[in-house]
Nucleic acid binder design. Structure first.
Lengths: 215, 215, 215, 215
DNA sequence: TATGAATGAGGGTTCATTCAT
DNA sequence: CATGAATGAACCCTCATTCAT
């Protein structure tokens, strides 16, 4: 039976959990591998059986934590009866923001290490165990849903939203600068809706053409 | 006496310049104080006469470099005849993006270390030597100019623009993901204009009120 | 039962062969037991069933490889019709040098680990499977042959030749310093013949007595 | 004044001496840098101010010790009244052998690390402080002396002698195998004289031509 | 002011060896 | 017989910081 396998998995998880605790409390730079193994209660060599170095374990943590974050929101979304794409996106964003505002340690960790590239990867693995799903494919099928073909350039649109949300929330949640998260939300959600409106195919994309003429 | 002062200033500048070169070529973590003083041609002890540690010199560099970046754009703006606030903002953003796209090393360095908080500070010192000027004051006088009172919430508005530009440009310029900077520009500038439109007082702020009702 | 025995022998041989490959490509110091077992495709514990440590496997390899080297030369000698002892020795030396010059990796490995003591042992086991043969006995019977009693001090003589050949060839073959092997050969073979001449009983050993008087 | 310089030299010498003691008592492999600095009474970092690693200090030791060995012999030679080249060479060899037989630890250390290449270098620096002297130049002027042009191929000749002496003495002095050093000496010195005789220009080089015809 | 030799704690990493399976 | 996960001592090396000059 898989007793050995179980034990290995358990050890790896202990290391991941301990590393996360230390990374978020002391910072990654100031956390040494000695710190991790001491607190995890395993030998130093054991660390190297599972990870190549400190940055390997960090990357695995970021991916794991972001996936989890998105999966929670996504699972909640499945229980809702929202159908309009705009509402579904705002729902997801709102859920993620709320989870992060209850867990600023996680926010700090993720915001320092998450990029659009990693986000795309974890978006996929959050809803499926199989990694052989393409990001665009997943995004169109599971999030866009019925409105599959309703937008110009849906990836750029999502990218703009992702970057906007990520950077403004970090400032608001961690420093309340220039305003608190609760104050920011209406501004942010209005802007997100605005962005989506711009990319809707059934809208006259007047401002886009205007901008393009100017710049 | 001026000679000694000069010499001191020169040494400090050499250290700053050398540190920047090393930080951007090897990364901050992998740059040691030994590296800096060796390359700068001064003794190790001398470093500690001017800076407390590696992070002190980094912070001074970030502030200095961001100011410079903004000052270049601002000085160019002064030579232009743009008067509309929207055009002035786009002009500044565009100038900064172009300078960064010609200097990705600087972009990488700044993007890792710049926050809204630091930006506000460097925005001020970019146009004035005196640090005793309030950000809002400066912003309203020098950028908003005549349209002083034309917007609902000018700081939040600027904040949204700053964060949006910062995070999307980093991804586009450094990784060309999901699109290149040149492809991103029309999307971005349209969105910036959109944001500003939303905050104009003479516009009917319908979407804002709608959003606020929903969320 | 033969099957199990076979399997054991096969595993041991795989380990020996793999160790040799790694020792000669990476050096003994830089080869770890992990390296050996990984490349050999056996488990770490298995290594310890056959060898006590890295140096155990090295010693077994040196003896084996030297024997082999000498056996090749010796078997070739048996097919020749040389009868004069001097010619037979030169033949053996020449054959060994040629094999080593085609296999500098082997030369490097052997030269670092071979001594007169080990050479004597492998000389014996090269021609016989039984280790219970005395070196002098073997040397007199198989190499000296008919000229059994023709030399004053055959072991010292062979020792001088062995050390001379070993050290000069290493320098010539591995570093071509001060000359290449092909350039060295005439010097070397002349000197070997010279040595043997000195020890021939039917020669007037004038120089020996002269030297002894002086020193 | 050179107080600091003095101190540095002293520290380096302490490290060299301590390293030699440890290398010869425990072996190079089993000596760690920690061992050296502990015994030398300096901090670990100090080691790296003077040497790049363990092998750097070993190489410096080998060169130093070999030079010294040769210098002792050479200085003694200067006080002798020997003029014949053959006698001078035997004198040097004999002196070196005697010093090594009184210091087998040194012999073991040198024999494991000395090669013809290194010997040439240390031969030069043993008699002169200037490194800009060519080996052949030095050898001809100081050792060959008046008999400057009396030999065919003096470098090869010296090489043969060097390698012969080095390898046979190691076996004799360290293992007394196959005979003791005192027993070996007459054999060895006779052979050395023999070699030199072969390369003398005023001799009929009959054996050389004979050998060349055969091989 | 300026120097740079000296420090030594602490970093990451390796690896021979064991032993429960 | 064979395995390979786990160990943890020991390794080499770096580097921020100090301080006598």
């Amino acid at each position: 039976m898989g007793k050995v396998e179980d034990n290995k998995k358990k050890k790896q998880n202990t290391l991941l959990k301990t590393a996360f605790d230390l990374f978020t409390s002391k910072g990654i730079q100031k956390t040494s591998i000695s710190d991790i193994v001491n607190q995890a209660g395993v030998a130093k060599g054991t660390f190297y059986l599972y990870f190549t170095d400190k940055y390997d374990i960090r990357d695995k943590l970021v991916a794991h934590k972001s996936s989890e974050l998105f999966r929670h929101a996504y699972q909640k979304l499945l229980t809702s009866d929202l159908t309009a794409f705009e509402d579904r996106v705002i729902f997801l964003v709102d859920h993620i923001i709320d989870e992060l505002s209850n867990n600023k340690i996680l926010l700090d960790f993720i915001s320092k290490n998450l990029s659009w590239r990693i986000f795309k990867r974890s978006l996929i693995s959050s809803a499926t165990e199989k990694d052989n799903l393409d990001f665009t494919e997943f995004y169109q099928e599971k999030i866009l849903g019925a409105e599959h073909a309703a937008f110009h350039n849906p990836e750029v649109m999502l990218f703009l939203i992702f970057e906007l949300v990520g950077s403004t929330c970090k400032s608001a949640l961690l420093y309340e600068d220039p305003i608190t998260m609760e104050e920011l939300k209406p501004h942010l959600y209005r802007l997100i809706r605005n962005i989506m409106e711009n990319y809707r195919k059934d809208k006259e994309p007047e401002s886009l053409s205007k901008t393009q003429k100017k710049q």
